[in-house]
Write a protein that binds this DNA or RNA. Structure first.
Lengths: 216, 216
DNA sequence: CGGCTATCTGAACAATGGTCAGATTATGCG
DNA sequence: CGCATAATCTGACCATTGTTCAGATAGCCG
């Protein structure tokens, strides 16, 4: 997967170096971690001079940054696939689909720890919040929550901040599991807790006795 | 703060090099990020030969790892201080104290991003979960939740997994804010949502209609 | 064909992580 | 006190790294 570098390396001119570089970098980062990857190694494995890289990326951080943005899309791909794998508008289908999105997030982190760390590391500091607010991953989460809302699984009182809570909890548990600070089951416990939290413990009868949801 | 290196560097033998190294590394990491710090610079700023470092730490990762463990304690210190700054057993005091612990976590991350990233990075991968399960930071969170429980602010149904949910949500929101993926207010929204989630939307009347909290 | 531009090479540089033999000092033991 | 032994630090050294730059090579447009 994710290997564009089919262009024949005819000789002096490599067909699509930039894609090959990212693809190769992906492999090395996945294997050795972002810190222990060298431009020279990337170039060498492609069969190109080290300096060639600098005609496509200003420096190392730029290469890893570009890779990171790629990974971000990959993550969204997997979440989307997991979501689409569970069709239907029934309540249970909606619940399962919602959970599947979260599980996909964690699974990706767990099976690609180095890549996951890269794209959430300082090298990929995206412009700012708003740029990413309409990223695919975010939209997926939003629509997932909307569906949950539609089947009455989300207390209106917690709805406004739900996306943030959910993302934070899933991202946090994924990270902490990677760090070995939480056991692997944590992700399921977190997802359980989230569902409870969303519906405010009262499945249907939604009481409005919440004291402070947004202070602002 | 955190500067032990008072021992006179009499000459050939530096009083307490290991402490001085960690302290100096702390400064450089805080300033330039863990990736952009070199052994040589650390050694030079202390006024010692580069090779001297390797008599105290097998390699760079070991130095940064040691520093990371230090930072972890620092974080706990600040949380503990924030907690103790709000005494009293009243319901509002308990609530404020609980929140203060979370805010301290985020504040530390926000004002020491590079250090925060370091001690939650791959270099500090602690042995395993159980080792850290009785760390000060964890104990602080546990006792905070126990107090919350005592004033009836925690639905018994969510109690068992509450620590994990809370830590994950706070850690995740802190991380995502550092990455520029969430706005800074996110931390408050998350803390609000957590309080709501804990008490199951029904402040006093705790209904037991929760479907699945632990699946196991 | 001729030139222009994009692309790649090769050699070079300064800085880095790490090693090792040996110099320097502390420390304990008589 | 004196001396051996261990602890600590230095200096020179090596392979590797990120990065630069003048020039080589090749596609492309007229």
């Amino acid at each position: 997967m994710a290997s564009e570098a089919i262009s024949a390396k005819a000789g002096y001119h490599h067909g699509d170096l930039v894609a090959a570089l990212i693809s190769q970098a992906r492999e090395l980062v996945a294997a050795n971690g972002a810190d222990h990857v060298s431009m020279r190694e990337v170039a060498a494995k492609i069969g190109v001079s080290p300096s060639a890289v600098y005609h496509h990326f200003p420096d190392k951080d730029a290469l890893l940054g570009a890779l990171g943005r790629t990974i971000f899309e990959e993550l969204a791909d997997e979440q989307e696939a997991a979501s689409k794998a569970i069709p239907g508008k029934s309540a249970t289908a909606t619940r399962k689909r919602f959970r599947a999105i979260g599980v996909a997030y964690f699974s990706f982190a767990k099976s690609n720890p180095n890549l996951f760390r890269l794209c959430f590391g300082p090298l990929c500091a995206m412009g700012k919040f708003d740029e990413k607010a309409n990223s695919r991953a975010w939209q997926l989460l939003v629509s997932g929550l909307e569906e949950m809302s539609a089947i009455g699984a989300v207390d209106p009182a917690v709805r406004p901040n739900a996306e943030i809570l959910v993302w934070a909890a899933i991202h946090g548990s994924s990270m902490l599991v990677l760090d070995g600070l939480l056991p692997e089951e944590a992700i399921h416990l977190v997802l359980d807790s989230i569902e409870v939290a969303l519906q405010g413990a009262a499945p249907v009868t939604k009481l409005k006795t919440v004291n402070r949801v947004a202070k602002k």
